[in-house]
Design a protein around this nucleic acid. Sequence first.
DNA 1: GCCGTTTTCGGCCCGACTGTTTTCAGTCG
Length: 569
Amino acid sequence: MNKKIVIRTLEKIALYLELKGENPFKVSAFRKAANALELDERSLEEIDDFTKIKGIGKGTGAVIEELIQTGESQQLIELEKQIPKGLIPLLKIPGLGGKKLAKLYQELGVSSREALKEACESKKVRSLPGFGPKTEEKILKELEQFGERTGRLPIWYLESVVREINQLLASIEEIERYSVAGSFRRVNETSKDLDFVIATKSPEKVREQLLFELTIKEIVSSGDTKVSVVLDLDELVNVDFRLVANEEFITTLHHFTGSKDHNVRMRQLAKEQGKKISEYGVEQPDGQILTFHSEKEFFALFGLPYIPPTVRETGQELDRLNEIKELVTIEDIKADLHMHTTYSDGAHSVAEMGEALISKGYHFGVITDHSQYLKVANGLTPERLKKQREEIEAFNEAHPDFTLFSGTEMDILPDGSLDYDDDVLKNLDFVIASIHSSFSQPQEKIMERLFAAIQHPYVHMIAHPTGRIIGEREGYNPNVEQLIHWAKEYGKILELNASPYRLDLCIEHLKLAMELGVPIAINTDAHAIEQLDYMEIGTKYAQKAWLKKELVVNTWSVEQFKNFIRKNK
DNA sequence: GCCGTTTTCGGCCCGACTGTTTTCAGTCG
């Protein structure tokens, strides 16, 4: 039995119980059990007693055992008999939850989109208790937009939306401070919506200006403390603004940064200490409400270190507090090892990129333009590469406290050969190998190409190992586990490409690389000076994998780095 | 349904908003 199937079955049972209008705590018990099983790192075979896992008890444990023994769950089969499948997608309609759908089904026999539409149009819905004409209208409107509703949007798209909204918020006088919150602040790859927390003394004025300035398709709700809109951009984007008093800002920010599971753990911990957390402050045992100047202060009240938003996910971060100080942060970063200049497809010159690195406070960097195969990117011939090297050496002479290394991002060609000969490569300080072509080759062939590169004595690093673009394309589907093992065996670096389009390697693979002690370089792959800022997203993303700074090549001193690249020649 | 060094029963995170009510249920995050 596949663990994923067991987890999905428990979630399915929860869904059906919800549709029956069951006790919400019972419903969430099944969800919690599914979640607990998912968070447990062990495989089904390795777990001997499921009820020993917190969140799994007699009932849910029996379902799991039954699934393993027989491959099915009688409880689910019973539920499927009682409740038509057509109801499940209706749960996605905003405003309709289990209780209301249960009523619609039991009273009106509604079990499909068509039946629901028909019931609304014939005005039968408004006669049910708890329903009215407005609900009817709202359901009809939602049914029309069904499917057209926005799904999850990728971080690279939301990043530009957030930047624009931040600019707007900065321009509104009545706003004392503001911050993006939600899953975007936690640096998730995709988000369902954007959340902003705003501190102000004049919520009504701020609300007015927001509704006036933003490109709004629909106002979802607009109350004293919450404004919720759908923005009419290239993609429809749901955005929630929370308007609070300045002293409540920190607790509100913490609350709406989430995750839900993190908040639940925090509130449980508070309760154990006789305290109560809400958006508006922390209530002490004596009834006094405390507010905070920073999240650091907030966590300190509970005896916790500052927990960065990036790791506030499963709630288990509260069990890994001593690892937090080892996490890589932007302050630890001393270098960027992958960037492009006007020699290939970059926007700025060697000297401009070098100066930009120095102004970031870095100690060293590597210029890595494309190799000759990539004609569309104006890849460098060995002659141009040599000329660039001279430019780099001149830059170094003028900047004695900084080291710019001469490198390349060399293509691994479709036939598995490398784009430069050894006598070209041996004159470079740092050699990145990567795939930019023939993505659809069978995995076997892709792995041959990667192997040719990773075992090559002059190659130091594999860049963006899967070639994925978040939400756009899968990449070339390599066997990443194998690749990580090769990196270990041949002592090579793997990249975490910090571009929000890529974030490649992903969290799961970064975890494996860390387990094996494979060094990771967080690189921006900048094609212009501004993109060097991607380093921030990259380090935050690395935190999500609990990446320790010592394994991150960019935190090394220039001597450590020199040692490493020499060793590989 | 799950959980428990104060509890084997009575809680389960907490609050806003909407649309329904005429004080609150359902939904959402």
